[in-house]
Design a protein around this nucleic acid. Structure first.
Lengths: 231, 231
DNA sequence: ACAAAAGTGTTATCCATACACCCATGT
DNA sequence: ACATGGGTGTATGGATAACACTTTTGT
């Protein structure tokens, strides 16, 4: 233990302190399904259920650094865009241990990351199957909360640019929204809305990979994250 | 240090852990100004500046419990509605100490609470005067972030019910919005919007305290917090 | 009677929604 | 030629924003 900060000596002498962990909710789009990347629980209290990638934060580490370190250790994915979700501290979150968890969440496109994930060590669980029966501790609650936040963020900001490749078709953008929200959107209205926001601009390139009529590729015009109503 | 949680033993053996604190941004409406309740910094690194009420979280305490304890200690206010803001962990938040701060924010109506606050121990600093010159550490940043969140929450949810008394006039409700947002709203449109949301209902009581024509008193019809567009 | 705040409706504009057909390409 | 997904425009209804006068009370 290092030297005490004078502002807090009163507290330190009266109280022992809890442990701070980081847990990451990593959503991914896989085969038109919204999935969560989970790891097998490493102890008997997890009862063989899955858990979020997580670990204890170290001294001198920021939360983001700890999240990066843990994500790399558990999933081999490094330095991706993520956002802080909430810090959970309810009593009995975890039966045996007084741990406070600062959670992060993000969404990645499976195609890019599947190659780096070792599927013998992590599971891609469809969001619809997340429940207290499949996921340990309060992690199902955390995942549900992360899903609400993800939807909000995608509806009202341009975060989606963080998960798309440089060039993309309007259809692939719409697919992401439809998968995340679990509903279909009118193609014309969706395109009209997206284009009117001036977040993206057309290029003169076309997607020739799929057969059928080639789709025009677009790119984001502005890399700043901002609040805009998308849906 | 208590027994180690098996999920985290790897981390624990490799790393020492940082300290978790709670800081509270307590906004209040005082003389038509949005103010922040601050306390004098208790050490030389605060350079005589003001700081947010804050302290170290204890083992077995939830963040909310710690926030309540600290708020009561520093301001004599107990068990008020508050929301978690963000957990700050940037390097060099605090020059001498590796502390991660989970922050909470709330808004109270000065009239109710002024009697309980000891104004020789706490300061009410108008939000406009919050800056790195007046407030220590990164607390000015935290306050600014809390202000953004407060505005969002007031624009899109019915939180405001948490700070109003049981019965209130539409004018006092509008005053709160105008003070927080620093702008005036059209009286007719404001009333129309609020009433159309069906969040509040009229009573047959009138405010007779002020002179001039007595204003009808209203009450909230629903105590649940929900997302609704107010402005 | 007058000052001061409460209360009340209408109109114009913008945005969201609903909806159906033609186009370019590969097979 | 046909099957498949890409691409486009209009009309309607609902929400928002702008705007001024009458009412009730205390002094």
């Amino acid at each position: 233990m290092s030297t005490l900060h004078p502002d807090y000596t009163d507290d330190i002498f009266n109280l022992s302190i809890p442990v701070l962990a980081v847990d990451i909710v990593l959503f991914t789009l896989y085969k038109d399904q919204l999935c969560v990347v989970l790891v097998p629980g490493r102890n008997e209290w997890a009862h063989g259920k899955l858990t979020l990638p997580g670990g204890i934060i170290g001294r001198g580490e920021t939360l983001e650094e700890a999240a990066d370190r843990i994500l790399e250790r558990d999933t081999n994915i490094s330095h991706i865009y993520k956002e802080q979700l909430y810090t959970f501290s309810a009593h009995n979150r975890d039966d045996r241990w007084d741990v406070i968890s600062c959670s992060y969440y993000t969404l990645v496109w499976a195609r890019e990351f599947l190659s780096r994930i070792d599927l013998t060590k992590v599971a891609l669980l469809p969001y619809d199957l997340v429940s207290k029966e499949t996921v340990a501790y309060d992690h199902a609650d955390i995942i549900q909360y992360a899903y609400q936040r993800l939807k909000w963020k995608m509806e009202y900001t341009n975060v989606v640019q963080r998960i798309l490749p440089e060039r993309f078709t309007l259809r692939s953008l719409q697919d992401i929204y439809e998968t995340v929200f679990g509903q279909e959107f009118d193609k014309r209205n969706f395109r009209k809305k997206i284009l009117s926001l001036q977040l993206i601009e057309e290029t003169n390139e076309y997607d020739t990979e799929n057969s059928k009529r080639p789709a025009r590729l677009y790119k984001f015009s502005d890399k700043e994250l901002s609040i805009v109503g998308i849906l």
